[in-house]
Design a protein around this nucleic acid. Sequence first.
DNA 1: AATCTGCTCAACCGCACATAC
DNA 2: GGTATGTGCGGTTGAGCAGAT
Length: 262
Amino acid sequence: MGRAPCCDKKGLKKGPWTPEEDQILVDFIKKNGGHGSWRSLPKLAGLLRCGKSCRLRWTNYLRPDIKRGPFTQEEEKLVIQLHGILGNRWATIASQLPGRTDNEIKNLWNTHLKKRLMGMGLDPQTHELITSCSTTVKAPASPITRHMAQWESARLEAEARLSRESSLFNPIPLGKTDSDYFLRIWNSKIGESFRNCKSYPEEMMVGYDTSSSDELEDSSDSALQMLLDFPINNDMSFLEEDINKYSTPPAMLTENSFICPL
DNA sequence: AATCTGCTCAACCGCACATAC
DNA sequence: GGTATGTGCGGTTGAGCAGAT
């Protein structure tokens, strides 16, 4: 079946928003305590835009909690780290960077970070080293990349296992939400091996109840936060270092970097 | 000064999913 | 259960700008 267009495009304006239009949209949302139905908003507010365009303008630009300006080095590191775990799930990545939008992060990745990784000889999708014959190799050159590769392995294994389990016992589709996704991985044997890992310092567990994985109900945020907090030495200085460094044999992991027995 | 080239980022498009009817 | 509608997401585009030639 065909899908009806999101709005009747006749007479509707496209392209850049004017300050006047911005003001109308902001005023309307403020006055009504929210946007309500995006579809009906333009008509009610007196805008010659489709609802989708209004929603995009609001979420990516006009929202009061938007943090404008260049990304900090910390934010860039976090984006790279999260991309290694999540892939192109921009909205999920954005949820971990307050004030940043998925669009902004997507742009950052496509214009800066992707090139930076490629310049270092890393595949921007897998975060693994690219050889001359355009294949990727295992044994990533740095703790962070190793960490990402380990998580990707864990993710795939968990996905396969949970897929089998869910087809037997659980009607809920795997990966229906990112919350389920991380919670399931965390509650799996993969997550267990992470939790039992000796190199995971006690202080990291403060604030997380790990006495039982079953107690992590509705704790996808906690699970994800634990992944983000994982002791990867926070050393991403390699991002700024010369590519030549990575043409040498893989660096040894530092003392407190993470190796998980998968 | 004019043109070219590359970069950035706001905005659009189409698809997928959730929900209402 | 099937269809229509609303919304969110990721990929892509193109206008505007800056620096190079």
